[in-house]
Each structure stands twice: as structure tokens, then as C-alpha cells.
Design a protein around this nucleic acid. Structure first.
Length: 330
DNA sequence: GTCCGGTGCG
DNA sequence: CGCACGGGAC
């Protein structure tokens, strides 16, 4: 850890440069800069768990217009929730989000808890999402740890790639060590507001970025840098605001892109693709029951087709009627 | 074809 | 810990 100490001496110039970059280049996503509710932030995080932010935006906007709070989502028919989830992917998360909404509505009187342990106990909310809500929505000082942040911090401060798998103790320690202090305790309250207007913001709203607590600003800026500049395979070091302070760049990018160990799972030709196409067919049927033979064109292997139908049934993503017809659940 | 990530479960 | 889980950008 001796190398870390010298790197940590540079945290202040790194912060200044990163904050400046963030205020100029942060993407103007509708759930940022205090323009939505804590619930809206949670919805954006759940949708972003699996999908690029740019793809999430139209879904989030439409979703929040229909279900602006947990109580309204809790009361929605499942079929409508699955349909609104559209092609975002991993549709079980849509059902988990609705179950989460039901718990928030019933257990917390439709107020999202401002407490990590209560958040992480909700369905579909793990360590990352609970931390993200605490930081981004409530301005609480907490280290947010996702793969983007792990990659950026490991490169900049340790000079090497982050390894695959769960975050190591060293990584968690580093994230807490470089997390800025929030001097003004009042500042952490300003994010709680009832304003969930969805229109595109004036670009000057970005001055709001400077009013967020430093820890929340830091978490978002590091994550944004990892998503747009310090990407896994081909980092754009030539435009990186931290290039002059990055130990990984200084060391010559040793083992660039070697961090991921997880063998990539193919998608084309897998059960997942079949499941997705079955669900899409049911969505397009808009409530009308679909027979098994209508799904034959999706998959020539009937054993596999039945397996996919059964797994969707187990996940609660479809219902099988008495006559064997299929439909989205109510 | 290759790349991409968090959550839940076994 | 290893694995399942979509879908689109490139």
C-alpha cells in the first residue's frame, strides 16, 4: 500500500480537474442535477444496471410519466409493467422493481428510505444501487462501487487494471480513502425535493453540478469518466482530464483491458434470445392470449421452446391458461 | 462476430 | 465463489 500513499497525495488536483470536467461534459440525463425524486433516481439506477444510459432515457421518461412514484407502480397490472419495460432487457428486473415499489408503498408510506440497510433489503436493490441512491438522491457521503469506478480508481491511483469478480477489500478501502469530505452538512439536504419535471433542462442547469455535495459529485464524475473516457478496452487518454495524474498511463497502460476475467456469454442462439422473442410476441399481442403454435416460428426446437416457456412461467413473466394459451400476467 | 454490468441464487 | 439473466452498439 506504500504506492497508494504517494498517489493519494494527488487527490486534490485530481478532484479539481475531474470536477471541472464533470461540470462541462456530464451528460444531461433527466434524473441528474436534482430534477427528480429519490424514487426517480432509483428507477434510473435499476434501468441502468443493464443498459447504456442513452437507451434508458426514453424508457425512464415514459415510465416516470405513467408511474411517478412507488404507489402508482405498485398498483399497476404486471402486464403493463412488462410492456413498459420494453426491450430494456432482463425483464425480471421490471417485476422486481414493481415488488420494490409495493414494499416502499406499504412499508414506508410511499417514501423511499434514506437508509442503506433498508434500501439494500428491497428486491432488486443490491450494494451498488443502494449506495448510488444514498449518494445521488440523498447526498449522503458513501463510497459507490461499480465496475466503472473500480476501473478508474484502480488505474488512476494504483496504476493497474482492476481484476474481475467482486470488489476486493483494497478497492473498497481506496474508494473510501479518495471520497471527498462534505464540509457543509446542510448541503446534503438540498437534494430532497418534490420536483420531478421531466423536460430537458437548460444547459445552465449544469451549474447545479457544483451545488451537489462533493462526495456525490465525485461518485458521479468518476463513474461518468469510466463510462465515457476511461473505458475498458480503448481508453481515450488523449482527452482525459486526469491524464497528467494517472499512474496507469504513466506506467504505459500495462495489461490494458486484461481486467475482465469473466468468459463472455454468447447471446445469439441462446435460450435468453428465445425468451426475449417470446416476451416480445406477448407484448405485441397486447393482452390477447397466444397459443404455443404461434410461437413455433421463434424456435424450431420444441423442447427448447417449452423449456423457455416454462422458465418464463417460473419467473412470473407469463401465465399459462387452462387451454395452454400464453399471456402476460395480470 | 465483440463489447458491455448489477442482482440473486445455488 | 460461479452462473443466469437481454439486447443493442460497434
Amino acid at each position: 500500500m506504500e504506492n497508494t500513499e504517494t498517489a493519494l497525495a494527488e487527490t486534490e488536483p485530481i478532484r479539481l480537474r475531474l470536477f471541472d470536467w464533470w461540470s462541462r461534459y456530464a451528460r444531461d440525463l433527466p434524473w441528474r442535477f436534482g430534477r427528480t425524486t429519490p424514487w426517480g433516481v432509483l428507477v434510473s439506477e435499476v434501468m441502468s444496471q443493464q443498459t447504456q444510459m442513452s437507451r434508458v432515457v426514453p424508457y425512464w421518461t415514459a415510465w416516470m410519466r405513467v408511474w411517478p412514484d412507488a404507489a402508482s407502480l405498485a398498483a399497476a397490472p404486471k402486464a403493463e409493467v412488462i410492456t413498459a419495460w420494453g426491450r430494456l432487457g432482463y425483464p425480471r428486473r421490471a417485476l422486481r422493481l414493481q415488488e420494490c415499489a409495493r414494499q416502499v408503498a406499504s412499508q414506508y408510506a410511499d417514501r423511499l428510505p434514506r437508509d442503506y440497510d433498508q434500501l439494500v433489503a428491497l428486491p432488486g436493490i443490491g450494494d451498488y444501487t443502494a449506495s448510488a441512491v444514498m449518494s445521488f438522491a440523498y447526498g449522503e457521503r458513501i463510497a459507490v462501487i461499480d465496475t466503472n469506478i473500480r476501473r478508474v480508481l484502480s488505474r488512476v491511483f494504483l496504476g493497474r487494471e482492476s481484476k474481475g469478480g467482486a470488489a476486493s477489500r483494497e478497492e473498497r478501502q481506496l474508494a473510501w480513502q479518495v471520497l471527498p469530505e462534505d464540509e457543509d452538512p446542510e448541503a446534503s439536504d438540498h437534494r430532497v425535493n418534490g420536483d420531478d419535471r421531466l423536460e430537458t433542462a437548460d444547459p445552465q442547469i449544469r451549474s447545479a453540478a457544483w451545488r451537489e455535495p462533493p462526495s456525490a459529485r465525485w461518485n458521479q464524475a468518476v463513474m461518468e469518466l469510466g463510462a465515457t473516457v476511461c473505458v475498458a478496452r480503448k481508453p481515450a487518454c488523449d482527452i482525459c482530464p486526469l491524464a497528467g495524474h494517472c499512474r496507469f498511463l504513466k506506467a504505459g497502460l500495462p495489461g490494458l483491458g486484461s481486467g475482465r476475467t469473466r468468459p463472455r456469454q454468447r447471446f445469439a442462439g441462446t435460450d435468453r434470445q428465445i425468451r426475449g422473442s417470446i416476451l416480445q410476441t406477448l407484448r405485441q399481442a397486447s393482452g390477447a392470449p397466444v397459443s404455443r403454435k404461434d410461437l413455433k416460428p421463434l424456435c424450431d426446437d420444441e423442447i427448447r421452446l417449452d423449456r423457455c416457456i416454462a422458465s418464463l412461467d417460473e419467473d412470473g413473466l407469463l401465465e399459462i391458461g387452462q387451454d395452454g394459451s400464453l399471456s402476460l400476467p395480470q
